[in-house]
């Protein structure tokens, strides 16, 4: 890249929280705006998409409508690097709970005029539709990861975002294990690091915002959850939240249908 790279921030089906993380970097946002040309970011600026090429595209949200399925292909074609921000873009998000359910029932439950609603039967990650260069996990993403990602991208190196389990972060933070000591259900052993083991620090079990870590042993964890008294429905619910469509969580939930 020569000169300041051009950045676009795109929104698909989401809550806006991950792109808000950029504005929540209160100490860094003006410096970032100095190093990068924020060419398209509708949440923060009135500047329109000029139809041109972007060096970096940040994509938040999952694909849930026919329009979004088309739009992501155009964004890929006009971007050098595509980076997904957060659980929705990386695994489908909470709205992927509609996958496998009847779309008609869902529309009927919320809307009086189903004929006004244009939606796909599934919520899917960006990588199901186009090639993604890097995925930032989390519901929401970690600000520290976001700043690291921007710094790494500007320097042309790979971002350092550890792929070990939340469980490791928890040990490093020195928390007492909430599952061993108190029998609370915890997804820490199978969940990707990134939050700094926030929930155990607040006396609750991890609920898997960052999605599955590499090669998670979900079956062993489920057995332990059952020993602690969780029934099949509780175990299924535990895996079926913000990363419900991530394959390892999806399969383990299905095993408890």
């Amino acid at each position: 890249m020569t000169g300041r790279p051009r950045l676009a921030v795109w929104k698909f089906s989401s809550c806006d929280g991950c792109q808000l993380s950029l504005l929540d970097c209160e100490d860094e946002v003006l410096a970032v705006a100095g190093a990068i040309e924020i060419a398209y970011f509708p949440e923060a600026t009135r500047r329109e998409d000029d139809g041109g090429h972007y060096d970096i595209s940040f994509v938040e949200g999952s694909v849930t409508t026919p329009h979004e399925a088309e739009a992501i292909k155009d964004i890929r074609a006009r971007s050098t690097t595509v980076i997904t921000l957060g659980a929705c873009a990386t695994s489908g998000g909470i709205q992927a709970l509609k996958n496998g359910a009847s779309t008609k029932d869902f529309i009927d439950a919320v809307y009086a005029h189903p004929e006004f609603i244009d939606t796909l039967d599934t919520a899917t990650p960006i990588s199901d539709h186009v090639k993604v260069d890097f995925e930032l996990r989390g519901c929401p993403i970690s600000k520290t990861h976001l700043i690291e990602l921007i710094a790494a991208t500007l320097a042309g190196r790979a971002p350092q975002t550890p792929a070990h389990a939340t469980c490791i972060e928890c040990k490093m933070a020195g928390h007492v294990c909430v599952m061993v000591a108190e029998g609370k259900p915890c997804l820490g052993p199978v969940t990707h690091a990134g939050c700094g083991a926030l929930c155990p620090g607040y006396a609750r079990g991890c609920y898997g915002c960052f999605g599955p870590k590499e090669t998670p042993n979900t079956a062993a964890l489920s057995a332990r959850l059952a020993e602690n008294g969780a029934d099949r429905r509780q175990i299924r619910r535990l895996y079926s939240t913000y990363n419900t469509n991530a394959p390892a969580f999806r399969e383990e939930a299905k095993a408890h249908d």
């Binding site: 991950c18 808000l20 849930t64 709205q95 869902f106 919320v110 939606t119 929401p140 619910r237 939240t241």
Partner: peptide
């Protein structure tokens, strides 16, 4: 904004899950 059907998929979830799940309606 595409519909995300929160009121539909909340059915069958546990009461204790509502504050965490409904938070995801809005990041602001």
């Amino acid at each position: 904004e595409p519909p995300r059907f929160f009121e539909a998929f909340l059915r069958g979830r546990d009461h204790s899950e509502a504050p965490d799940i409904t938070a995801r309606i809005c990041g602001i």
